[in-house]
Simulated assay, not measured.
Amino acid sequence: MTVFRDFAFKLLVVEKLMYGDETLSPAFNLRQHMRARGIEDLDAYVGENGLEYTILDEARTYFEDLEIPAELLAGVEELTFDGGHQVFMECAPVWDGEDDLFDVHRLDDLDLLPNLKFFTGGRELEHMLPGARDILAARGIATR
């Protein structure tokens, strides 16, 4: 079982594989998941429960428990950090990108991606984690 140490980093990998490459399936859809639980209006549910700036427990549990096969991880050559990622919207459907909810806090999980060559969003990553670009460069990973 592959274990990620940084949830936000795992979400970047999920974005690439599930919503980008579509090789990790089925794609998680929070609205459908919540409809199955009897919640028809997700935005109203979020607002009524003060969940605007949080990752919904249902999404966190799904993505924390999600197994990503080693062969898919080995195929990841590029990651991107972008506040508009689909996976972020599946976790926090009314998130506005104005806080640190999805900040990466550690890069230990780079070991899980043996063929990573590029990281797009290096400036944003450096802002979240000072020294990150140096860590990537030391591993031969180019930033854009």
Rank of each mutant, 00 (worst) to 15 (best):
A8Y: 05
F9I: 13
L11A: 02
L12A: 06
E15T: 09
K16F: 01
K16G: 04
L17I: 03
L17Y: 05
M18N: 08
D21A: 01
D21I: 00
E22H: 09
L24T: 02
S25H: 10
P26E: 04
A27W: 00
F28K: 08
F28P: 02
L30Y: 08
R31L: 11
Q32C: 12
R37G: 09
G38V: 12
D41W: 02
D43C: 06
D43P: 00
A44K: 14
Y45K: 12
V46H: 11
V46L: 11
G47R: 15
G47S: 12
G47K: 15
G47N: 15
N49I: 08
G50Q: 08
G50P: 07
D57P: 01
E58F: 00
R60F: 13
F63C: 08
E64Y: 02
D65S: 08
L66V: 03
L66D: 03
E67G: 00
I68K: 07
P69A: 15
P69S: 13
E71P: 05
L72S: 01
L73M: 12
A74H: 13
A74M: 10
V76L: 00
V76I: 11
E78P: 08
T80M: 07
F81M: 12
G83Q: 10
G84H: 11
G84Q: 14
H85P: 01
H85L: 07
Q86D: 09
Q86H: 07
F88N: 03
F88C: 04
E90N: 08
E90W: 06
C91T: 03
C91M: 02
C91A: 09
G97Q: 07
E98A: 13
E98G: 13
E98D: 14
D99S: 14
D99N: 15
D103C: 08
R106A: 13
